[in-house]
Design a binder for these strands. Structure first.
Lengths: 311, 311
DNA sequence: TTCGTGTGATGCAATTTTTGCACATCATGT
DNA sequence: ACATGATGTGCAAAAATTGCATCACACGAA
């Protein structure tokens, strides 16, 4: 996109913090890049960067301008998507930021299903924790965010929410495997494997434990659900997960997940369910491809969790 | 603005309907312009214009793209205004579309007052009738619209509304000049001078006349209030106007308007008051200069018509 | 201090891009 | 059949961009 080049350059420099680094990334020489920036600054009438010995940094005017640039680039993507849609085949690029839970089985399935109908659409899936998803919306690095955490940011437009109860995962030979519902106090004493402190599941668990003055025997922490789940095959420990992170429906988790691992709901009186929020930046008009994908996943969530979907 | 040149070119071509005409207006040769357009079309991946023997016309993709371009240009103006505001002196360009009424005395005063405080701000005042104001908002040719007509378009964000009663203007020697309130039936028989059929005043009058099955003795139609008012000096005729089109406050109209002409309210039971709507394109963020000017005029309207201002 | 290494800015020649002229091509109206 | 207006294109001139070498500066380590 020739007519957007200069704007893209400024955006890159602001991210890299240095003209030379940005020039490397953009595959042009630093002097050419430098002069383009000087030219734009002259056209604007004011400098956009502070020149520091260690590089450059946006000044106030630059902050405003870069925000404008990002919004323009996102808007251009939307327009292109809309124009491409006219020719019948839907093109476009969809950028999703999500917690690790949904990235395991739900989103792969959803993306594959979507691409089966629209093979010209490309995707970019970023794993991130809580606030990061919302931040990436604001910097327009992401179109759609899925976050298993309370929505804090006012700029997050919630398109749908799905209640998710915490499930306890264990080897099918585990003594607790015979129960239909797990109480939190039953878990005490058993070795426990917990997700990263940034995780929404962990947050819910920690809050519940403090409130009931309980403590788990935490033997392992990880941010890889796959690792944790596989570990259960070799040790009589407990792990925790939400339904969207499990393959297939909850009832069939024994078969469809990793063989030999079962999931049992934790009593909601002990740990209240959390909510997965799906949404986008308030005020944005999503590109066609992204908007339709959002529709798709909301529809699939409604089918899979008919009683838990709200909004 | 170098980096917006191509976009501006496309916008101009779409307005002129011909590459050559646009090239003349842009002071470059048609061949250069033509090739730039071809280049952009190639980058977009689809043609934006239909080539007709009589010139070019936007196709569907072009319509979408041009709308995007206009929005970008308006947004850039906002950003520039915002950046300029950082340096203390407020710069910017404010474009207002208004009916003739407010353009007579109210807006000149308001602009002069604003420019006294912010001399670096420039203005562009366009006179237009009813729907045209709202249309110019949509094509982003205008920042602020004032319209004495019912708001029909859904994209018009009404920032304020001022109720305006119809007044009857006449020579101070006119037999009706002694009355405090004019009834519509009193006007029948006297020669009447009416504003253009597009005018909001005319619309209110016509509706009222039809409802009461009355007919005025219309001797003159014009779209120039100044002409109509001056005509009253030389003939015992009646004309109509709303307060905002009269100089000073209603009470002092005898002195501050054209000497020898008086204004008398028409009974609201005969002709209901209309509303002047002031607003901008829904969803737009106005440039600083325009936003502040809007605040200004709303404030001044509230001071001048304290009981008639709503919203 | 002194040196090395990073930063952005600049003069000048080479290169790439853009432009303008002349002309081709096409459709339409007279 | 012709004139007229439109967009598209080959080619040489003009203009803009780029890359190299270099400058000026600030910081950190020896």
């Amino acid at each position: 996109m020739r007519f957007m080049a200069n704007l893209k350059f400024i955006d890159t420099i602001s991210r890299e913090g240095s003209i030379r680094k940005a020039a490397d990334k953009l595959a042009i020489t630093s002097t050419a890049l430098n002069r383009r920036i000087l030219q734009v600054e002259e056209e604007i009438g004011q400098p956009l960067f502070e020149r520091l010995p260690s590089g450059v940094r946006l000044n106030t005017a630059g902050e405003i301008f870069v925000q404008h640039i990002r919004s323009q680039m996102a808007d251009l993507a939307r327009v292109q998507s809309q124009i491409a849609d006219l020719s019948g085949i839907r093109r476009g690029h969809v950028r999703v930021a999500s917690g690790a839970d949904a990235l395991r089985h739900f989103l792969p399935e959803a993306v594959a299903g979507y691409r089966r109908e629209h093979p010209a659409v490309t995707f970019e899936m970023t794993r991130c924790y809580g606030d990061a998803a919302e931040a990436s919306l604001l910097s327009l690095d992401t179109d759609i965010a899925m976050s298993f955490a309370p929505v804090r940011a006012a700029h997050f437009h919630v398109a749908a929410g799905v209640r998710q109860q915490i499930y306890c995962l264990m080897n099918e030979a585990h003594p607790l495997a015979s129960r239909d519902v797990i109480r939190l106090r039953d878990c005490v004493g058993h070795p426990a494997i917990l997700p990263n402190v940034m995780s929404g599941i962990r947050h819910l668990l920690d809050t519940a434990l403090i409130r009931r003055n309980l403590e788990l025997n935490t033997i392992l922490e990880s941010d890889s659900f796959e690792f944790m789940q596989n570990y259960l095959l070799h040790d009589e420990a407990l792990s925790f997960q939400i339904p969207i992170g499990l393959a297939g429906s909850v009832e069939t988790v024994v078969d469809s997940g990793i063989a030999g691992i079962v999931a049992r709901p934790v009593d909601t009186a002990d740990v209240p369910p959390g909510v997965i929020h799906i949404g986008y930046l308030k005020g944005r008009v999503l590109p066609v491809a992204a908007a339709k994908f959002l529709d798709d996943i909301i529809h699939q969530l409604q089918q899979r969790f008919p009683d838990e979907t709200g909004l």
